[in-house]
Amino acid sequence: MTGSPARARVTSGPAPVPAWCADPYAEALRAGRGPLYLRRPDGWLLPLDVERWCARADAADLAVLGRCTGPVLDVGCGPGRMVTALARSGRPVLGIDTAPFAVARARGLGGTALLRSVFDPLPGEGRWGSVLLMDGNIGIGGDPAVLLDRVRALLTPGGLLLAEAARADIEERVEVCLDDGGGGRSETFHWARLGTAALRRHAEFAGWSVVEEWSAQGRPFLALRRT
């Protein structure tokens, strides 16, 4: 669930460390569980599903992977459950993430992953058949329009973006930090949260065609085609 965060600093508590490279995130991945939260400046906390990220791909994940076409790029691959599931099935796939421990874990499970932001130069630009934005990664960078444009450049003409929306009917752009619930925090970074309706609006405004909408295990997804 990671992109290229801004490098502002929180103003209270322990000295923060860079987001997604932070000890709270790395420690949660090492343990395979939370607590880990996104924290807004007003103190509101969004629990992050570290246990699911560190487990094998579940039925909802596999339903997404079954819709992929061509070679697959997993943006913000985290500890690599989607990358390794595709690799086991013999599909060409690459994961990218800005968190060193997440990339190391994905590689350790047999996946191919690079320590890279989606906004960095990437292999195969314009030739990926499918791009994944799972686990809220449509929020990377805090500006969905910019991210959708970037993903368009990565896909082959007619390629698919498979994106997971927020469960709530929401559209917000905020500065958040990672919080372990015990005083450990990262630097703040820009993030966005889009429910299904908001994601559909952004996609259609940017010229994407909405191919399909569905939910699995309470998680909403959209399949968008590059037009």
Rank of each mutant, 00 (worst) to 15 (best):
P5L: 11
P5E: 05
R9D: 15
P14R: 14
A15H: 06
V17M: 04
P18N: 01
A19M: 15
C21K: 10
D23S: 08
E27L: 07
R30H: 14
R30D: 13
R33F: 04
L38M: 05
R39D: 00
R39G: 00
D42C: 10
G43I: 10
L45E: 00
L45T: 12
L46P: 03
C54H: 02
V64L: 11
L65S: 12
L65E: 10
G66M: 07
G70K: 02
D74A: 04
C77P: 00
L86A: 04
L86D: 06
G90D: 09
L94V: 08
L94F: 09
L94M: 03
L94H: 02
G95F: 10
G95Y: 10
T98Q: 06
P100V: 13
A104P: 01
R107I: 07
L114M: 13
L114G: 09
L115D: 00
L115I: 06
D120Q: 04
R127Q: 15
G129E: 02
L133E: 07
A145C: 06
A145M: 12
L147I: 02
L147G: 03
D149T: 15
V151N: 04
P157Q: 02
G158M: 11
L160N: 12
E164S: 04
R167W: 08
R167A: 12
E172Y: 00
E172C: 01
E175Y: 08
G182K: 04
R185I: 12
S186L: 12
F189R: 00
W191Q: 08
T196D: 05
A197Q: 08
A198N: 01
F205L: 13
A206E: 07
V211M: 13
W214K: 15
A216S: 15
P220D: 11
L222W: 06
A223D: 08
